[in-house]
Design a protein around this nucleic acid. Structure first.
Lengths: 341, 341
DNA sequence: GTTAGCACTCGTTAGAGACGAGTGCTAACA
DNA sequence: TGTTAGCACTCGTCTCTAACGAGTGCTAAC
């Protein structure tokens, strides 16, 4: 059996109706509401065919039809048209990207924006930069027995910590340790750090200080390697009638709380561009009745991170895709400008 | 009517039973399960009195009794005995406070610990330190047209930011601006900052840099003034049968997500020591069927922050109070040691 | 190929009755 | 005076049934 134009139109109508009502769609509704100019009986025949093709299904005999995962897939691949952003939405986006104070805040802002524009839950991974290296450390004396250590990595992130140091350590010692570290470890990636450190000896009293400082460098580089997870609009889950069940919500919130799971999910995004996973296409058991739309963003032409949304399979794919694509573009542009490459 | 000893025992038994089962408690259950040595009929008479006193109530005619907010209040004020911590629990607490890596991580750890020990949702405000002042700034050159600014406040917190600066600015300019700021603004609280800044003139090309640096100082001091909110065990809400209703969960999660609300709630904690708010004693409409147990922690004898738990009014008050008190003590001790006063 | 007609399915809703946990009251008892 | 057995009564919960209706598939006619 082939998909002719009318079948496609019927499938579109079913999806459109189901997406907005969350109720199984009957032949009468389709025929009347979407002006097919044929009777419900004719639509029924088409629906019967669509069911045979696996694009729609019946929750039970003699209920209306709902789109199957395969139906959504066909719709997304072959039928869906990109939607235009409304003026208000474009305005919101413009506002976020053009009133940027600093990059770190941007990630949360973009995630919130994404959830707000789509009404689904938004997730995001901050940029993972291939092999960040140690750049420099500063040790600043503070009160009598403390020091503040500030580590800068090659990607411009800063990690700092208040150190407790033995009283015998002078500010000259601080300077000496900082000099030692900067001289010997500059430009080191994480995996080389340990082996080089072993070569540095004879620190005497400064050993404690040195160890703490190196620990911080370690953390700074590790933090960079592990992409941070941002969540936005988590409560949007409650808007979906398919999640009126407490257990379902609990499962989903449990997944979102486990950042490692979110990371895995997002990292399954195809290497470049947009990725849509519908229902059972998702690996993770707990989101088998959800769809995820994600897209990668780049710095200097290289993929560094992902943003995405998580919603029910009954999702406004067209709108969602437009927003996700738009935001990744803007994000890439902004980050490139910021990192000046 | 007076509360005699048996009435108190009956109230205790009702609360104890209701807390563990979440079902209205009948006279038979009380008489049998709690070895009163009298018949259900006698218990019924006592219950009737307790109801008249307002300590228990019936959900409907001829159901069992449940404790009223007033009943819980009487129990907490007059009847409750402190519970001892189990060995395993004490071990967990010891582990967190004695394997401390750094103070900033401690806050989230304590919040998580609190929720884990009680099985309720834990909330916490990070220390608010009265009038933090600007201590010092470092401007570190980075790449050709950037600088990393690091601001240290009087309480040892560090704020940093990557600055974009005009190309004409040299590293000497950076040093000069840092010197200027350190010399003129050192020891300034937030409210004096602006007026002093106006006195500094003739910055020429460095104006942009100067403004960005001051902006960061501003933010660092403001961040300190506004206590940060930490949440732990949010999903514990789902364990409570009283929250099997989706709308209730949504409301509660909505409140927890609005950090400003949480801040207000916690700041209503009595100036010192423990605070228990039961049901309608809570100001906020959305948690009128919850109880909150909170306690302040101190640095240098001065109250600086609050930790607390939020659960259903049907709460294990004894256990919860013990844990909250224990953690505030440990927290105060640890912070004092860390800040060395 | 399209459509009206019609029997049929099956989830949803509303109502009725049985059930049972628990009460309050009364009267008897120590 | 406090305690208790007995008993009628209340009311939420559970189960069963019947009515309803949205929607289907099939058939036959156009």
């Amino acid at each position: 059996m082939q998909m002719d134009e009318r079948k496609q139109k019927v499938l579109c109508a079913i999806i459109r109706d189901y997406v907005s009502t969350a109720e199984p769609v009957g032949s009468r509704t389709i025929a009347r509401k979407y002006n097919f100019g044929v009777s419900p009986a004719t639509i029924r025949n088409e629906m019967s065919d669509l069911e045979e093709l696996g694009f729609i299904e019946q929750p039970y005999t003699s209920a209306g039809r709902i789109p199957s995962d395969r139906g959504y897939r066909y719709f997304v691949d072959c039928l869906m048209e990109r939607e235009q952003l409304g003026e208000q939405e474009a305005g919101l986006i413009h506002h976020v990207f053009n009133n940027l104070e600093e990059v770190n805040g941007l990630f949360q802002q973009v995630t919130d924006l994404l959830s707000r524009l789509t009404n689904y839950t938004a997730v995001m991974l901050s940029p993972r930069i291939g092999n960040p290296t140690f750049q420099q450390i500063q040790l600043i004396p503070y009160q009598t027995d403390k020091a503040i250590a500030v580590v800068i990595t090659s990607v411009g992130t800063v990690e700092s910590k208040l150190l407790n140091i033995p009283e015998v350590i002078t500010s000259d010692d601080l300077a000496w340790v900082a000099y030692l570290i900067n001289n010997n470890l500059h430009g080191m990636p994480l995996y080389q750090l340990r082996s080089v450190i072993r070569l540095i000896q004879n620190l005497g009293e400064s050993k404690v200080l040195f160890d703490q400082a190196v620990g911080l460098i370690d953390r700074a580089l590790k933090a960079q390697a592990n992409e941070k997870v941002y969540l936005g609009g988590v409560l949007n889950i409650f808007n979906q009638p398919e999640f009126k069940d407490v257990e379902k919500i609990r499962t989903l919130l449990g997944i979102l709380e486990e950042h490692q799971i979110v990371r895995t999910l997002l990292n399954e995004t195809s290497e470049e561009g947009l990725c849509i996973k519908i229902g059972t296409e998702n690996r993770h058991q707990g989101i088998r009745d959800c769809s995820m739309i994600s897209a990668t963003y780049k710095i200097d032409g290289e993929v560094v991170g992902v943003i995405g949304i998580l919603g029910p399979t009954r999702m406004e794919y067209s709108k969602a895709v437009t927003v996700v694509e738009n935001l990744t573009e803007n994000l890439s542009k902004t980050l490139n400008k910021h990192y000046n490459r």
